[in-house]
Design a protein around this nucleic acid. Sequence first.
DNA 1: CACACTCATGCATTAGACGCATAGAGCTTA
DNA 2: TAAGCTCTATGCGTCTAATGCATGAGTGTG
Lengths: 306, 306
Amino acid sequence: MREMNLKGLDLNLLPILQVLLQERHVSRAAEQLEMSQPAVSRALARLRRELGDPLLVRTSRGFDLSSRAQEIQTQLSPLLQQLTDLVQSPVFDPATDTSLIRLTGLDLELAIYFPRLVKHLRRLVPGLRLETVRQEEDSFSMLDRDEVHFSLSGLQPASAENSLHRRVIDTMPLLCVMAENHPLATQPLTPVSYAAAAHGLVSITGRGPGSMDKVLAQLGLTRQVMLRLSSFMSVADFCEDTDLVFTLPQRLAERVVRNRRLCLRELPDTLQPSPVSFYLYWHSRHHHDPKMLWIREQFFAALEHP
Amino acid sequence: MREMNLKGLDLNLLPILQVLLQERHVSRAAEQLEMSQPAVSRALARLRRELGDPLLVRTSRGFDLSSRAQEIQTQLSPLLQQLTDLVQSPVFDPATDTSLIRLTGLDLELAIYFPRLVKHLRRLVPGLRLETVRQEEDSFSMLDRDEVHFSLSGLQPASAENSLHRRVIDTMPLLCVMAENHPLATQPLTPVSYAAAAHGLVSITGRGPGSMDKVLAQLGLTRQVMLRLSSFMSVADFCEDTDLVFTLPQRLAERVVRNRRLCLRELPDTLQPSPVSFYLYWHSRHHHDPKMLWIREQFFAALEHP
DNA sequence: CACACTCATGCATTAGACGCATAGAGCTTA
DNA sequence: TAAGCTCTATGCGTCTAATGCATGAGTGTG
């Protein structure tokens, strides 16, 4: 065994020392440690040599503690106990936990999915504190810098971030949102009539074409994007009483339309891209944390039972 | 390596973990630990396996700490520091020490020898507290029970107590103490005239003959002990203006005579037993304690420079 | 004085940690 | 997209050192 700490003491001798000081008896200590008597005797010899103190001194009634041993005994047990606590798998106790969990995501996405989780967690973990963090340009780097524990996003990491984990929260088709009195609201929606409409686009990153532009391109069609928004929250305001058509994921679309003079239209099958998914992302640094694991489970449980 | 603490973790891995968490880099940790890179990598693998956590997770910029590792890092360093402090030889610092030292011995012996030590220690260890404890029948068992740290005694342990250590404080012949107006004060002191006198005896243990009885017996003489005292302190009171002769160790005799109407007479050479010694006794449990060692040294230094 | 109890030690075995060399994995740069 | 660089993980042989068994030594007790 070559492993040494400062000053070359074998730390593994300390638990043996603890029992020796408690029992003051080599044979009994050996029994309690499930070691042979000679092994413990040798360990004691090593301890004596490396600590430079007899530790156990002979008396007419057997061994007694040296001053040094008395001093050590009062301190060793709590230290070893703390080390044991530190080393053994931490148990997450919802009843007493007071952690702070940080989550980021777009306003609308959070508004849709987060309340269910909060309701769930408030009941199960009364001490838990939750915090939403304003999403920066790249929520993945926020995870990477450990600024948030979770990111709720429909985007994909630019490069294959192998330090991120994710799980699908929800998958849905795209729907069209338009004013109730929009001409297309009552006419058949075809690829051609869709492409001919005036479009609104929500672009989180602020650049690049939307997924619909790619689908249209495959059919040899193009569309005109007359308004780019950086957030979903104001879509309704720009859509109501205008000729703009927004193409949004279903849940967001339903939310936008709610209580507004707007209507939903399904895309023609040939225009429907592959369904859109939202993901919960987290960093691998928290992947094995029992608390985070538990919270992730609650997240998905909350989504299953809204 | 079979040495295990609770739950089978090799404690010697912890200092390696400490450096790993600090460096977040296996190669640098290896360098700092003066180990090979593969050895540290293996150690990390063992830690990961036994703690059930990745500890260091890969990132685009190298390793980062897992939640568990972050938690461990904040606690591990102080714990290891405390263990190191506990394990390394305690340094006795006279300037700050506030220990309590207990000493026992007979009143007169303490009165003769103890003040020098107190004067000495008060100057060198201002925080040290000293306490004299009333001597019980057997001061050696007081040492054995750790009721006192030192015993000042002229006696010898009944059975060869191998858990006791001692060192000679002072060695001296026996002298006779008698009233100034005692007939023997002005007459030649011979074995016969000594034996014929009326004797006083201080017997600490309360039983058995004194050493003089044995010396006289070797010359075919006997003496009559008319008064047995259990303490030296009152010898003068019983000796002044009486016909009693006390035979005492020189330093005690000189002290008894001081300011009294008493005189000292030397024993005839043929009556002089081997010189009497006083010892400082201590228990082997404190033999290696740096503090006790230091105090012992001061004790003898004080005696050499009264 | 012999017995009983306990700790220390000689000896052979063996487990496992180490270093060296190398393979593998991931990120950067051309 | 591929080559190169950096760093970690692993296969292999070596060797230290801890262990258990058996025994000796020291000490207190009947």
